[in-house]
């Protein structure tokens, strides 16, 4: 679905990483780890077309990312659910309207009553009508996750999804992501949280990648 082949990226002429290859297949579960500033977020952005690689090939659902127009990239994003650490919402819309936003922008009829199951699944049943600024960090992460999966995407990409939440909440989020993976979704999570990785490995087959020294490597056995 998403393939990176010998990809490089640089900011202002300074190479961030190079010779990065990655393939996200249906049902795969990847963790991406590495020191701060190694380029994890940049690598994720290449995976959903927000950035273009300066070298190598990125293929998004079979199409070379370089040839995609902005509108075609928008269509790709409907197949990729993205969760950021700093979850951004439309603050003037309710939580449930924010979660339904991908349906709205894709022109689908939105019946908010039908979203109750999803809202309950992420544990936000009582916060559905609140505005995003009224949510806690963990609640925002879960709302972002609900928004990311509402289109039933093939791939879920999460950038430090547990960065702002306590251990208990991170376990809940992980459980949700594992459930989605069991439904056949490919999951890619960038995180510093080694405990999260270990917890996931005990429940699902994962591949842990480390982005360090400008290269992407398979993590050691300790992970």
């Amino acid at each position: 679905m998403i393939e990176l082949d010998d990809v490089a990226y640089s900011y202002g002429g300074a190479e961030l990483f190079a010779q990065v290859s990655l393939s996200l297949a249906p049902g795969s579960f990847h963790f991406l780890t590495g020191p701060s500033g190694a380029g994890k977020t940049t690598l994720l952005k290449l995976c959903y077309g927000e950035l273009q690689a300066i070298a190598g090939d990125v293929r998004l659902f079979g199409a070379p990312a370089r040839t995609l127009t902005r509108d075609q990239i928008a269509l790709v994003r409907r197949k990729v659910g993205v969760v950021h650490q700093d979850c951004q919402f439309l603050d003037h819309l309710s939580v449930i309207e924010n979660i339904a936003l991908p349906l709205t922008v894709s022109g689908q009829d939105v019946d908010l009553a039908n979203l109750q199951d999803l809202i309950s699944w992420v544990g936000l049943g009582s916060q559905a009508e609140q505005l995003p600024p009224q949510l806690s960090g963990g609640e925002r992460q879960r709302a972002a996750l609900a928004r990311a999966i509402i289109m039933s995407p093939d791939v879920i990409i999460a950038d430090e999804p547990t960065g702002n939440v306590d251990w208990e909440m991170s376990q809940r989020l992980l459980t949700l992501l594992i459930e989605l993976n069991r439904m056949g979704k490919a999951v890619l999570i960038a995180t510093h949280d080694l405990n999260l990785i270990r917890a996931a490995k005990s429940q699902v087959g994962t591949r842990v990648l480390r982005l360090t020294d400008r290269r992407l490597q398979q993590a050691g056995a300790d992970l």
Binding site: R70, A74, L75
Partner: peptide, 15 residues
């Protein structure tokens, strides 16, 4: 920010 969020969830420019 509104534009960023809308793009993130797959909104096309015309929308």
């Amino acid at each position: 920010q509104v534009i960023r969020v809308m793009r993130l969830v797959g909104a096309q420019d015309s929308y």
